[in-house]
Amino acid sequence: MTRISLLDLVPVREGDSVATAFANAADLAAYAEQLGYHRYWVAEHHGMPGIASAATAVVLAHIGHATSSIRIGAGGIMLPNHAPLLIAEQFGTLEALFPGRIDLGLGRAPGSDQRVAQAIRRNLSGGADQFPRDVMELQAYFADDDRQSVQATPGAGADIPIWILGSSLYGAQLAAALGLPYAFASHFAPAALDEAIAIYRRDFRPSAKLKYPYVMAGYNVFAADTVEQAQLIATSMQQAFVRLRTGNPGKLQPPVPGYYEELPMQAQAMLADVLSVSSIGTQVDVERDIAAFLRRTQVDELILTGQIFDPAARKHSFAIAMAAAKQAIAQQAGASRETA
């Protein structure tokens, strides 16, 4: 049965504060738990005025105290920014605070530019070649491997699922080689989705952590009671992508009626590409779109996201999305029984 999870970028709204963004995130996580979402993830970003999840482990501690059962985790930690020992200690601490609820997704992109990387004081010269080594070093800290010269305290012996994240074929290949679950960032970089999933499933090697391949995919949802309302709330995220691609990132902007239609054709084409794995509409529309995506990808889990300016509209959107996803999954299960 396909699981449904939620990715929150902890958006900082125009005219609002970081403190309010954290309060909204905790409120959303608690609501997602009530709705039956399986996981709530936040992602590491730096130097982004509109995203408040830079100190990812600290944000997750805040979320953990606002919830009681939903899995919480990083989707993800950008490992090139960190020494593996520090991540083992941070997530070992989270696991001790919230046992059995912590996930750790790892990405190889820095989640920033060179200026931020220098400010973080990490040497990125190792590039892609260093990422697999860092992942395995992190696994060794959690396993309390006595070949490590230092013990991670907390962290040693922690049973924390590690995921490999990606938006290209590289992550699929690494996750398959290490026998780890794989999450594809199709919510903003969908181009290689189908090929990456095929490579991961084809090349997957069972490990002590995972016997069979397990795929999660990102999916944007902007749902409302009418199509017009859904199209309006989607414009905040559309503005965010246009501003990011034109070198002018900022706080999340209020929705603008007719925003997409008034954009130049080049910007419309960019948004159509970046947000092609999305659904904008009512519950009926979202159910149809998610069902089609599940038929196409056969993913084990969908992680829904959607930056929406009004917190109440965002919660309503995720409530509609969960109801639609349940119907789509039931439809998929029914079709499978008919063909069995």
Score class of each variant (00 low, 15 high):
Thr305Trp: 01
Ser236Arg: 09
Phe184Met: 08
Thr2Met: 12
Ala29Gly: 02
Ala158His: 01
Leu28Val: 08
Met1His: 10
His65Pro: 00
Ala267Trp: 05
Gly171Ile: 03
Arg295Lys: 13
Asn81Gln: 14
Ala19Pro: 00
Thr226Leu: 09
Gln34Leu: 13
Ala21Cys: 10
Asp300Arg: 08
Val116Gly: 02
Asn220Thr: 11
Gln268Cys: 09
Ala198Cys: 05
Trp163Phe: 14
Gln130Phe: 04
Ala32Pro: 03
Pro213Arg: 11
Ile77Lys: 00
Val227Tyr: 05
Ile329Ala: 05
Met322Asn: 12
Val227Met: 10
Arg245Cys: 07
Ala330Val: 09
Val242Met: 14
Ala74Asn: 10
Glu33Lys: 06
Gln268Lys: 15
Gly36Pro: 02
Leu210Pro: 00
Leu138Ala: 04
Met78Ser: 06
Gly15Asn: 11
Ala21Asn: 07
Ala66Glu: 02
Ile87Asn: 00
Leu79Gln: 06
Tyr40Gln: 06
Asn81Asp: 09
Gln90Met: 12
Glu14Tyr: 08
Gln332Cys: 07
Pro206Asn: 08
Ile160Asn: 02
Glu89Asp: 10
Tyr141Phe: 15
Leu28His: 03
Asp103Cys: 10
Gln151Asp: 12
Phe184Ser: 02
His45Arg: 15
Gln130Pro: 00
Ala328Arg: 02
Gly218Ala: 07
Leu210Asn: 02
Ala292Pro: 01
Leu97Glu: 03
Met270Ala: 13
Ile233Leu: 15
Gln238Arg: 13
Thr282Asn: 08
Ala88His: 04
Ser69His: 14
Leu35Gly: 01
Ala328Gly: 03
